[in-house]
């Protein structure tokens, strides 16, 4: 379905014309330790938030924190777009925020450990507008000894 030809024409046109500029000459490359020693955090653009947090509003460029031991029943979604499926998320948080899978991979020794904190933003604004939040999230992750980020779009 995420193949462009499966997306309705009007939405496809918007996706084809979306401004992705600003990253042309930027090629950072961080190596990091062996996979089985990495500490991993999830960052999602699904505009997920805890029930106790404020929901994301239009053009919201802030971020929310999801604890690593969160009860999935406490996670809701306040993304402004209606052009993606929410029924999968309603049935299983892991289909868009695979925290339980990440814990399983750590238990199996595939990765080293799971971060104490994970993060969500709304993917609706241009990435440049989210940059201050991204830098703040990076600082928080480094304080949590995270060395690897697993990014999940919606």
């Amino acid at each position: 379905m995420a193949r462009l030809e499966d997306i309705p024409l009007s939405e496809r046109k918007m996706m084809q014309e979306l401004d992705c500029s600003g990253f042309e000459e930027r090629r950072p490359w961080v190596r990091g330790p062996a996979l089985e020693r990495r500490r991993v955090a999830i960052v999602s653009t699904a505009a997920l938030n805890l029930r106790s947090d404020a929901g994301f509003r239009r053009n919201d460029t802030s971020f929310r924190v999801i604890p690593g031991d969160v009860n999935p029943a406490e996670v809701v979604m306040s993304h402004s777009s209606v052009n993606f499926d929410r029924t999968g998320f309603q049935q299983d948080l892991n289909v868009c925020f695979p925290l339980q899978r990440l814990h399983e991979l750590a238990a199996e020794g595939v990765i080293g450990s799971v971060a104490n904190f994970h993060f969500t933003v709304s993917g609706a604004p241009h990435p440049a507008q989210i940059e201050p939040s991204a830098r703040a999230i990076a600082r928080a992750m480094k304080a949590d000894a995270v060395d690897t980020v697993f990014l999940v779009p919606i």
Partner: peptide, 20 residues
């Protein structure tokens, strides 16, 4: 998603993830 990845790498964090 790609933009966020570049910001995190610039901060010294390795990244991988999903592209839709």
């Amino acid at each position: 998603m790609g933009g966020l990845s570049i910001y995190f790498e610039e901060e010294g964090l390795a990244t991988t993830g999903i592209s839709l």
